[in-house]
Structures are given as structure tokens and as C-alpha cells.
């Protein structure tokens, strides 16, 4: 399934970029994420829990930055599985930053494949749930990016 969204943040692209590239910021903004660790210059591991009804799937993700043009574009690929279970998730993600009058327009897309427990739900419904989670990310990210700089960290 493909998810495409865009939102505007009241902060300049340089600042938005530095936040997006800060793993600790991402831990706080990605819904269900409780840890990101840098492996090398371009790879990270992360733990993300996705809940749909009573099903709670905790994924161990490996995220690789495959292309990066600071401060306007980043492409990542993530792969992950849920412990010993058969649930798998794979995604290719792109994010673009563009200056606008009142800050930065952030547009992103993700092509996501899910199999296993969560794959039992139809793609239509998973897309609605993913879009809802994306909305939560936007809200947390915007709050953080628009806050005075000292607060961040």
C-alpha cells in the first residue's frame, strides 16, 4: 500500500531537517516507537509497536538511508520482523522538504508491505490506520519543531 501525505511546519527547512535527522526526536514523534539506535553512518535499528484492536505487533526494524540531499530530500528503506513471529514489514520511504511562506512543507510517501498477523486486515483498512498514525506523527513533530529551540533535546 502507498501512503502519501504532506503538512506544513512553522519552522525553516534547516531546522526541520536537523530534527528529522535526530534519532531521539524521531523516537518521540513516531507513534509506538520506543527506541532507535545508530548502527553506522547510514543505518539504524528501531523498535516500533503497531496495535490494531487486540493485536499488538512489536517490530524490530532496520532502517537504511539510501539517498540523502540535505536539507531537502531523504529516501530510506526499512525492513523488520516481529520477534519470532511470521509478521514482516517492508517499506520504501521518501521525504521532501520545501520552503514555504510560513515555514516548511514536508511531503512524504511510503510504499509499505505487511504480512503476518497484521496482514490479515485488508489493505484498505490498514491504509486508514496508517494514515491515522501519520496524523499523530505530524502533530507531535509540528509541536516539537515549532517550540523554542532550547526545549528540543
Amino acid at each position: 500500500m502507498r501512503i502519501e501525505q504532506s503538512f506544513t511546519v512553522g519552522a525553516p527547512p534547516d531546522r526541520v531537517w536537523s530534527l528529522i535527522r535526530d534519532p531521539q526526536v524521531m523516537v518521540g514523534c513516531v507513534p509506538g516507537c520506543d527506541g532507535i539506535e545508530q548502527i553506522d553512518e547510514t543505518s539504524y535499528t528501531a523498535q516500533v509497536t503497531v496495535s490494531v484492536g487486540p493485536i499488538k505487533a512489536r517490530f524490530n526494524l532496520v532502517i537504511e538511508i539510501t539517498e540523502e540531499q540535505a536539507p531537502t530530500f531523504i529516501r530510506t528503506e526499512s525492513r523488520g520482523e516481529e520477534g519470532s513471529r511470521a509478521s514482516m514489514v517492508k517499506s520504501v520511504n521518501e521525504m521532501r522538504l520545501a520552503p514555504v511562506d510560513d515555514g516548511t512543507e514536508v511531503s512524504y510517501s511510503a510504499d509499505v508491505e505487511i504480512s503476518g498477523r497484521l496482514g490479515r486486515y485488508g489493505a484498505g483498512m490498514m491504509k486508514k490506520i496508517a494514515t491515522k498514525l501519520a496524523g499523530k506523527f505530524e502533530e507531535s513533530f509540528r509541536t516539537l519543531a515549532e517550540a523554542p529551540e532550547e526545549v528540543v533535546g
Binding site: G122, G124, M125, K127, K128
Partner: peptide, 8 residues
């Protein structure tokens, strides 16, 4: 106001 999805 409806927001249905395609499913089986």
C-alpha cells in the same frame, strides 16, 4: 461523511 474502504 462516510469513509468506507475496499475489502473482500
Amino acid at each position: 461523511d462516510l469513509d468506507p474502504v475496499d475489502d473482500s
